[in-house]
Design a protein around this nucleic acid. Sequence first.
DNA 1: CTACAATCCTTGCGATGTCAACTATCTTAG
DNA 2: CTAAGATAGTTGACATCGCAAGGATTGTAG
Lengths: 154, 154
Amino acid sequence: MLSRPDLAAWIRFLRAHAAVTRELSARLEGQHGLTLSDYDVLVQLYYAPGQRLRRIDIARLVLLSPSGITRLLDGLERAGWVEKVRCESDNRVVYAALTPAGIQKCEDARETHVADIEELFGSRFSDEERNTLSEMLGRLPLAETSEACKAGDA
Amino acid sequence: MLSRPDLAAWIRFLRAHAAVTRELSARLEGQHGLTLSDYDVLVQLYYAPGQRLRRIDIARLVLLSPSGITRLLDGLERAGWVEKVRCESDNRVVYAALTPAGIQKCEDARETHVADIEELFGSRFSDEERNTLSEMLGRLPLAETSEACKAGDA
DNA sequence: CTACAATCCTTGCGATGTCAACTATCTTAG
DNA sequence: CTAAGATAGTTGACATCGCAAGGATTGTAG
């Protein structure tokens, strides 16, 4: 109360994230057997040139640790949606590439997931408010090293 | 090909949460040995009447599952910041009550944590923007939608 | 060419958190 | 009173994710 900074916004940010992601995650899991992170990674691959990315770049794009990406991709590979592709010019890197099944999966999941996001999140705001919100959230720090800030896409 | 422009807001919401909570969590852990959730629960107890709460109420307040609360409180009890208190009128409930050490811990942690939140989150916005943001985030669903739907007719 | 540093990726381990199942207690209907 | 059901809490099995450490490869300096 006495403190100048208003914590209410931060608390609501935390609670809203917990509630919305929990519900979105449950629906995505139930309808497509995907985690939010799984879907996130599939979409990044979908829009990537050649529909493939280096593991390290995926990690920076979706803000997960490299080890988290390794394990997440293990699952996507086991499901047949992603495959490893050797890099000819640098043997350290192992591309993650979408398979045809992965492309299909991504499009299928998007069908319902985008609608769910709209229902639980987007529909709460007018068009102008969406822009305002997006702009404000864009001011928050994305990563310590600002390396992941090449995320100009959406 | 992005069907609606407001996906950008959602993506930024996700990324901002990941980045800010990761940094806040690292600082809180390093300076006080607390998780964000630990701190969250300590604060709820701090402001609760009698500085104690039923486990189930804590779970609803901080949006964690009952089992998650059990395990989180195990840790806080082991550290001596919280203790179990039997409820006289209902033997099912086990209050979680702040100890003097817990009160001290909460106040100590708040000192730096509130400043960290201000630095990483609050300082990005003007006073008016904070109110706007807080109001908008308050429109997002907080309750468990799927539970209510699953209950069906009730 | 050799040595050393940086980069990409994986693995061991631990922490956190969920769900399903269970016990124990309270409440309510008959 | 008793049976059925709701509620509070815990536990076991499991999934996710981060950090630290290590291996492999590449880049760089002498």
